[in-house]
């Protein structure tokens, strides 16, 4: 008896089932998601990334930030996410409806970034942290992203856009200015804000 068609059909079925169950059905379940409007001030959430933040997402992807940072907050009572102040509520599917690619991440060598824009709104903090993580977070094992900055030899006056390095980290007579990619990455990070109250995420 030739059982080849039986085996091949059987193994094909197993994967067709899991593809429909895990990928197609959830995709269908989410397709009618719509943004929420805040009745008080008319603001909409979520909004797609635009401008420099959108360009910054490509920098985030190409630098592989996702290999050490997640962008998801787990529910209250599950893990320490909310008690660590990484968000005021859990993140839900609607938070990511415009994201392509979705960068949930699976590793927290560094802290979660789902709301880093709300936690650290200051551009300067991000520039210092990217230029040398030891300035803002001593003991960090994050690499320095100095190639996202230019060194400018300058006189007494700092050029516009120079980052406020503490004296200990600054070579004499030079100033450090972010490159376009550096600026884009920081705008992307500052856009990481998933604090808008959503009806399906009470906690």
């Amino acid at each position: 008896m030739n059982r080849t068609p039986f085996i091949i059909f059987g193994v094909f079925l197993t994967i067709a089932f899991s593809l429909s169950g895990l990928v197609l059905i959830p995709n269908w379940q989410f397709q009618d998601h719509k943004p929420v409007i805040n009745t008080r001030d008319g603001s909409q959430y979520p909004v797609p990334y635009f401008g420099m933040a959108l360009q910054g997402r490509d920098v985030y992807v190409d630098q592989g930030c996702t290999y050490c940072h997640t962008q998801q907050v787990r529910a209250k009572g599950y893990g320490g996410d909310i008690r660590r102040n990484w968000g005021n509520r859990r993140t839900v599917a609607r938070d990511y409806m415009y994201e392509f690619p979705v960068l949930l991440g699976t590793m927290r060598t560094g802290p979660d970034l789902a709301n880093i824009g709300a936690r650290q709104p200051s551009r300067d903090w991000h520039y210092l942290h990217l230029y040398n993580p030891q300035i803002t977070s001593a003991g960090s094992i994050m690499p320095r992203f100095q190639y996202l900055f230019r060194t400018i030899k300058a006189g007494e006056l700092a050029p516009s856009g120079a980052i406020p390095l503490p004296p200990a980290f600054q070579a004499d007579g030079t100033h450090i200015v972010p490159t376009a990619r550096g600026e884009q990455l920081v705008e992307y990070l500052r856009a990481q804000n998933r604090t808008f109250p959503l009806p399906e995420a009470k906690q």
Partner: peptide
């Protein structure tokens, strides 16, 4: 993944449907 056939978090499921399988 590359042609946007699935949206939102379904991308993440596709990712791990592939990664684990």
């Amino acid at each position: 993944t590359y042609f946007g056939l699935v949206q939102g978090v379904s991308q993440a499921i596709t990712n791990w449907w592939f990664g684990h399988n």
